[in-house]
């Protein structure tokens, strides 16, 4: 059979047209959930809701090593956060660091020794204006209506833009498969896989069950959690009656974690200012 150019184009053109219609029709017909119109999704009844969740860290109540440890362990145990031996691979949701590193620019060489060496509890600040959300190319990191900076790990491609954007070091990358490094996996919570970034979620899975975050529960009142948009909340009362600071507030990310500092005071006229 011989075919000239014109005929060939006619056949090719019409078959492409038909195929397009066919695929389109198939797509419309096969749209999932068609016969499940009655099903729907809703929130749990126990859900604790807020406009902007926030936390106050009362550093005065962290005294012994145990006080820090139980808070960090509570989080890392229930969330299957791996414990790598190599600090370069470290994955952390909540951790501690010195004043100088937690509040850079605020320190001075003459400040009380105990402040210089005191560890501060650090975690994701669930910023109201989060740079990590802005840079995430897949919208894996996003802001929930209750102010939590959430991460959809099904979408994370491990590009680590968010790590570069977060000024607080709140995010960790899984350089290795974390599974073998989780001592006692919590069967009720997933782990992560190699190549994704993870961080604190303000325990949104616990809020859905009407529970406070695990670290707050373990802290004996040293961490207070609440809705900062609600003027009647406990957290607002604490902020109104205590002087608090936030990490790197000058960057404009509007962190939602506040710190009450223990300020060793002495009367200025009273001489010994290092008491």
């Amino acid at each position: 059979m011989s075919m000239d150019r014109r005929q060939f184009l006619k056949i090719a053109g019409s078959s492409t047209f038909l195929a397009t219609i066919g695929i389109g029709a198939g797509w419309i017909l096969s749209k999932p959930g068609d016969f499940l119109e009655a099903s729907q999704f809703s929130q749990t009844k126990e859900l604790l809701n807020a406009k902007q969740w926030a936390m106050v860290v009362d550093t005065r109540k962290f005294k012994t090593e145990e006080d820090y440890k139980k808070v960090v362990d509570a989080c890392h145990r229930i969330h299957n956060v791996p414990n790598f031996d190599n600090p370069k691979d470290e994955v952390k949701w909540i951790w501690t660091d010195t004043y100088k590193h937690a509040f850079p620019g605020q320190e001075n060489e003459f400040m009380p020794e105990q402040m210089k060496h005191k560890p501060f509890v650090l975690l994701c600040n669930h910023c109201e204006n989060p740079p990590c959300v802005r840079v995430c190319p897949t919208k894996a990191t996003f802001k929930r209506k209750d102010g939590i900076t959430m991460q959809d790990l099904h979408r994370c491609i491990g590009c680590r833009y968010c790590m570069a954007a977060c000024p607080f070091g709140a995010r960790s990358f899984n350089y290795r498969d974390p599974r073998p490094f989780i001592k006692e996996p919590n069967p009720e919570y997933p782990s992560r896989m190699i190549g994704v970034v993870e961080k604190c979620t303000f325990c949104e899975e616990r809020l859905a069950k009407g529970q406070m975050p695990a670290c707050v529960e373990a802290s004996n009142g040293a961490l207070v959690f609440g809705d900062i948009a609600d003027p009647k909340s406990e957290i607002r009362k604490i902020l109104e009656t205590n002087y608090t600071i936030r990490r790197k507030a000058e960057l404009g990310t509007r962190p939602s974690v506040y710190y009450i500092l223990e300020i060793p005071t002495s009367d200025i006229s009273g001489g010994d200012s290092n008491a």
Binding site: P32, G33, L36, E37, A38, S39, Q40, F41, S42, Q43, T44, L47, F142, R144, K145, D146, M150, D152, H154, E204, A208
Partner: peptide, 19 residues
Amino acid sequence: DWRDSAIREGKRIYVNSEG
């Protein structure tokens, strides 16, 4: 659908076609 509902919309209850 469950995944997107739970993670992205925070809706963690599924009501099936029988309610």
